[in-house]
């Protein structure tokens, strides 16, 4: 049991001591607005609504999902 708990804790311990492998000064590409999954929430939310109303699959849409409360 102790070994299992220790092995489960290892990634967490490693995480605490990890130096970020992408340094802050290397993040200028990621900060570019074109690197956002959804740049404009109002437009992305609308497309999710269109899909959810016409397709049976729902959920895991990312930041703009959540159910439209409509039939």
């Amino acid at each position: 049991m102790k070994k299992i708990i220790l092995s489960l804790m290892l990634p967490v311990l490693a995480g605490c001591s990890t130096t970020p492998w992408v340094a802050p000064y290397e993040r200028h590409y990621l900060a570019d607005p074109i690197m956002q999954f959804d740049r404009d929430p109002v437009a992305a939310g609308y497309m999710n609504h269109v899909y959810e109303a016409r397709e049976s699959a729902r959920g895991a849409e990312g930041g703009t999902g959540g159910g439209c409360g409509c039939n």
Binding site: V22, E26, R27, Y29, L30, M35, F37, R58, G59, A60, E61, G62, G63, G65, G66, G67
Partner: peptide, 26 residues
Amino acid sequence: THRRYGLTWNQVLTPKLMAALSIETV
């Protein structure tokens, strides 16, 4: 009635690559 439970993990992988894993139960 509707209940939704969602979890998303966003991860920067390299200076040019980012990924996100989402799960949701409805």
